[in-house]
Design a protein around this nucleic acid. Structure first.
Length: 277
DNA sequence: CGGGTTTGACCAGCGC
DNA sequence: GCGCTGGTCAAACCCG
């Protein structure tokens, strides 16, 4: 422990351990690996129970899986920490920073980006069920494609009339010169819910809707609103059982889940600070 | 006013 | 070649 740290902001061992436990529980839950993966029940990023591996398999989901508040459980866990001394205020952290060199305030002891990346919060895994290691939870429809999330989305940056643009972008959208369409990783899963939209923590913009053959319900097309991210998802209801929503993700996010990071940030900052003790 | 949704039109792929 | 279907675009619209 650095001796230059202001003693007035030195946290209790109790608090440090509590925070470590919390983050460990979060990470463990994110990574799955045990029979009871719902360490934080109601947190849909990793608590969607048994999404179906086969799209036309009989539904086994509990009702309204996605009705839970996305971050409720996490916030609840954070609230439980309120019994302990309060979180360090930002100015306290700043005060500590003025005493200890910045390198000691944010020591490289915990590599959060790689940790979160391993946990599937960044590039490389589907948003919801893929966070489990329950392989059956997700159907990977196609993984022959490479991770081309960074590709220029649309790339129809020219002028011209709407029709011209449509033609140009239409041509650019698929194989120019007869090459086969580059497929990207796709993951589909089903959720029994009254809501079409799963709160997966990412922000989506709807860009289209189509009537689907042999189905009374249309299919909706969404794109991730993050500037550099080109992940898409399709949402439609199962024709056989309209209580089931089929969500298909295409591509992988090249950025962390905003909502989750928003919720985790205070904890991570605290823990980074505390990890110097 | 900016960001998101709706919706008709357009395009490519595929089967016949 | 033609028609059907799925995927996307973008103007118009809506909303906070």
């Amino acid at each position: 422990m650095p001796s230059s740290v202001n003693p007035s902001v030195r946290p209790s061992l109790e608090r440090t351990n509590a925070l470590r436990k919390l983050v460990a529980a979060i990470m463990e839950s994110l990574q799955g690996g045990d029979d009871e993966p719902h360490a934080l029940p109601g947190f849909p990023y990793f608590s969607v129970p048994s999404p179906l591996a086969v799209l036309d398999a009989p539904p086994t989901l509990s009702p309204d899986d996605n009705q839970h508040g996305a971050l409720a459980a996490l916030q609840q866990a954070c609230n439980s920490l309120q019994q302990l001394p309060p979180l360090l205020a930002p100015d306290q952290l700043a005060a500590a920073a003025t005493v200890a060199p910045p390198s000691m305030i944010l020591p490289p002891m915990v590599d959060w980006s790689s940790l979160l990346q391993q946990a599937g919060l960044m590039v490389g895994s589907p948003p919801v069920p893929g966070l489990h290691q329950q392989a059956a939870a997700v159907q990977q429809l196609d993984q022959s494609g490479e991770n081309d999330c960074g590709e220029a989305a649309g790339s129809s940056g020219g002028g011209g009339t709407g029709k011209e643009k449509a033609r140009i972008s239409g041509a650019g959208r698929s194989s120019s010169s007869g090459r086969k369409k580059v497929s990207r990783p796709r993951f589909a899963f089903q959720t029994r819910s009254a809501n079409d939209i799963l709160d997966d923590g990412y922000r989506w913009r709807k860009y289209g809707q189509k009537a689907v053959k042999n189905s009374a319900h249309p299919r909706s097309y969404y794109r991730c609103t993050h500037h550099t991210c080109n992940v898409k998802k399709q949402v439609q209801r199962l024709a056989k059982d309209t209580s089931i929503v089929v969500t298909t993700y295409e591509g992988v996010h090249n950025h962390p889940c905003e909502k989750l990071m928003e919720a985790l940030n205070p904890i991570l900052k605290q823990l980074q600070f505390l990890s110097q003790f």
